[in-house]
Design a binder for these strands. Sequence first.
DNA 1: GTTCGGAATTTGATCGTTCAAACTCCGCCG
DNA 2: CGGCGGAGTTTGAACGATCAAATTCCGAAC
Lengths: 334, 334
Amino acid sequence: MTARQPTVEDVARRAGVSRQTVSNVLNTPEIVRGRTRERVEAAIAELGYAPSMAARRLRTKRSATIGIHLDPYAGGISGIVLDRFIHALTDRATPRGLRILVYAAADAQEEIQRIRQLREGGEIDRVVLTGTFEGDPRAEWLAEHDVPFVAFGRPWGEAGTGAQMGDPLRPWVDVDGAAGTRAATLFAREHGERVVFLGWPAGSGTGDDRERGWREVVGVDGLRWTSLDSVAEARSVAERGLAERDVDAIVCASDTLALGAHLAASHAGRPELAVVGFDNTPVAEALEISSVEQRPERVAEAVLDLLVADPTTDEGPWHRLIEPELVVRARDEG
Amino acid sequence: MTARQPTVEDVARRAGVSRQTVSNVLNTPEIVRGRTRERVEAAIAELGYAPSMAARRLRTKRSATIGIHLDPYAGGISGIVLDRFIHALTDRATPRGLRILVYAAADAQEEIQRIRQLREGGEIDRVVLTGTFEGDPRAEWLAEHDVPFVAFGRPWGEAGTGAQMGDPLRPWVDVDGAAGTRAATLFAREHGERVVFLGWPAGSGTGDDRERGWREVVGVDGLRWTSLDSVAEARSVAERGLAERDVDAIVCASDTLALGAHLAASHAGRPELAVVGFDNTPVAEALEISSVEQRPERVAEAVLDLLVADPTTDEGPWHRLIEPELVVRARDEG
DNA sequence: GTTCGGAATTTGATCGTTCAAACTCCGCCG
DNA sequence: CGGCGGAGTTTGAACGATCAAATTCCGAAC
């Protein structure tokens, strides 16, 4: 028969102080006299006391828990960056005393519903949004209901444009895609002038951003190919392109596209053709394709910084652009 | 100025009943008379009432929350299966009214510490273990402290051996690796008799299990190659092997190995050589390599089944082997 | 020696729910 | 007609912490 778990009352009795003093040692140690604090800490250690978060939540109406959505797996490698981000977020949240609760939801409406339940039930008190888009109803709802949140991804137009950039009610963290492709393109130019961009159809903020970085380096007459984010389509697009013109390197909007381009190049008898991907997924790693690394760990760190900041007292900026890093692989070295 | 969130008291007043009746409608609707229940449900809907999980937890000492560990990302594709599992678990847990809390920990000891805190704080009341190994201290600790848990992976010897198989205190769910490689080998034999197994060094339960399925089909004189789980090493092993002997197909213990084998085959001028991987990761998908799919969704479902079962009243079995599924890709068809 | 005031500590109330026991109906049986 | 019993409902207490206000302590100032 196991003994009941010790409470703050038990600790207090043992240390010869009152409940509240124990509570103070836990939450505001600086207001407790040194000798008293030591006695209480000793009692805590002896009893193996751990505070009841349930009781704390009920009283304080705070849970120190972050909610984040997890999609069902859809195949492909695009989800990996998000998973890495979540791993990093979990890793970084723990030392800050924050917990992470993941939830499922089929669409934005359902996600709002779920957030509402979790929030009103006191299970979470902050949210991290992913996969945001312009006019995202989730962000609107969260802002309207005063739920602190940070988005991974720019949901409200491009960097530098629009008044919402500095809006403390719409904080976000994103990776500077243009900087990534700029670095990739500069690197690719070492192999020759004709650096093609293999991107997605225009219209996706992320894709346009990545294209911009390349465009800034190659100028207006740079050659651009377009493909959906599929290996097969990217491959056939690249095969056609390579047959038509001489090309020195290909900078891609994703590793999926890069893989297609790489396969096309190999098939065209040019396995050494420089191809640079984006996201630095295991596919790029395995095939030794250079790729732009998003550094999800830094994103996670920045997200947490913004998430614990208080818009009413703290100063901005309320958005962060993380500088990605080009990872050059053996295939392209020397 | 926003109104205070409604409580069970508010709902009760509105419906003209008592606190407890509202509580009963929520938790044991069958004991409430039909007309009364309807009135209460109407009041709940009108007020938009959502129960406070914090208060419920405090009172019942249950949280309906599952804790699961998330490692930091280590590169490679091996983590993907685990991520898919977690996605599936989240997806399946929600409709069962269970929540999922993820936590970080550097090693087994730290994980035990974290579980203890989360558990005593009432944040989680069940755990899913991953990456278990024989004599895993985490499982020992959990069993000893009466924390319900289920392991993804067999931590206590092989299936069919040992008395612990039916132990309700050590429940697990795993994928039947042998069945997977058996199917893979049978498929590979359509391309010829000489089906090689490319596996990891002996000693890992998972690897040995997967080898067994192949061995059962090819017999004692089947040829086996060994490599650590790295593309580069697998490739060089396969290249050497292919140079030495004629081979009709290669069955691999992982997609990483399969990728290495595939590259070796292509390099040796045999891009059409049948290679079968394991885990059905995006890499296999992208390169159109056939692979054995673990079906993490089924694993998740089984884990949840065991996790909500009560060892003292329910009957076994307390372990489940999930039958994996061979995914044949275009490259190998026809 | 009394008064003042800040620091340290204690006390009573409270958060929102569920448990356990008590109570109210109401029909049925003897 | 009184007592019994079960279904349905209500009431008081408890879960374990923190908040807010009250109290004690103690040295300095007058």
